[in-house]
């Protein structure tokens, strides 16, 4: 048991390092696209460690407690995440619903801490984040329902292995409509444009983050990187057939994240009610159509 827990924390650390590096690389790629030079690939590490070393302000015990709860919850979620078929801390327990709901503890901690700071921008940001979540989660979950119904398991490795056993018939191909929906949902989850409403630096001063500085901000950055790791690798496992070894995982992971980043950089920003309207129009419809096709009619390519 001890060794599993250690593997779990190793996964969390790995995710942090991977996502932070990839984030740096992506910043460089975007910079090049925009005909800038871009920062160094390890710039994000520098940012985080600089923040952690700084003396910060605090708005009371809940302000700190929320940050701790946020980071703790996200680390706990990351420990359940499989990397490859074999590198998984708790086999059988990597249940999909754990990721959806345990990640919420971290989110709740952060939202609590942000609202506790007493800054209205933070509350508005939290409100927008929750609204966005309400928007993208329902279509996404319907696609997941389809996948679980088809594979008969809600274990992430189980779903990945199911795709590999079916001759690498990834759900990206088998469920094309569902894939499109989920990709949009992933962009919402990552808070990328056009669903960036709840951060909106120019409008509400980074939303929930507005009051933070120093070590709290550093910890929230760590939390953010691990969150992105969880969400993107969830997508890799669910739709891209998981990974037999770590190289494939890295490849798929980088591909998905870079694609998201590239797409997001050509868009502007939705207003918050546009986000909800958007997700409840086509993605929801497509998800239901996909589910009916796959579950009731059995037409899976």
């Amino acid at each position: 048991m001890m060794i599993n827990i250690l593997i779990g924390f190793g996964v969390a650390l790995f995710g942090f390092v991977l996502q932070t590096s990839l984030g740096g690389i992506n910043r460089k790629i975007i910079g090049r696209l925009q005909k800038r030079y871009g920062p160094k690939w390890y710039q994000e590490f520098l940012d985080i460690f600089k923040l952690l070393s700084k003396r910060a302000i605090s708005h009371g015990w809940l302000f700190d407690f929320g940050v701790i709860m946020a980071l703790g919850g996200i680390i706990a979620t990351a420990t359940f995440m499989p990397v490859t078929n074999s590198i998984v801390a708790f086999p059988n327990y990597d249940n999909f619903f754990i990721f959806v709901y345990l990640i919420a503890v971290g989110m709740l901690g952060m939202a609590m801490s942000a609202s506790g700071s007493g800054n209205p921008y933070a509350s508005i940001g939290v409100m927008r984040a929750l609204t966005t979540m309400l928007a993208y989660e329902v279509p996404f979950m319907i696609v997941i329902l389809t996948i679980i119904k088809l594979t008969g398991t809600s274990s992430i490795t189980g779903i990945a292995e199911f795709q590999q056993l079916a001759g690498n018939n990834w759900f990206m191909i088998a469920l094309p409509l569902g894939f499109i929906v989920s990709f949009m949902a992933l962009m919402g989850m990552l808070g990328k444009k056009p669903f960036e409403t709840y951060i909106a630096p120019a409008e509400i001063a980074s939303g929930p983050m507005v009051e933070y500085g120093g070590k709290q901000l550093g910890m929230l950055f760590i939390m953010h990187e691990i969150t992105v790791f969880i969400e993107v690798s969830l997508f890799v496992h669910l739709f891209l057939g998981g990974a037999e070894n770590i190289l494939i995982f890295l490849l798929k992971y980088a591909a998905v994240y870079t694609l998201v980043n590239l797409i997001s950089n050509v868009y502007g920003r939705f207003k918050i009610d546009q986000v909800v309207k958007f997700f409840y129009k086509w993605p929801l419809l497509l998800a239901i159509v996909q589910a009916v096709i796959a579950v009731y009619l059995g037409w899976v390519i």
Binding site: H59, V67, N119
Partner: peptide, 29 residues
Amino acid sequence: MFALGVFIAFIIFISLKKSRKVELMDTYT
């Protein structure tokens, strides 16, 4: 795992420099 995660976060938090306490009204506006 949640408890351990919070514990790790707490360790990180406590090992860093102590924060300065400010009033609730003292916010970025």
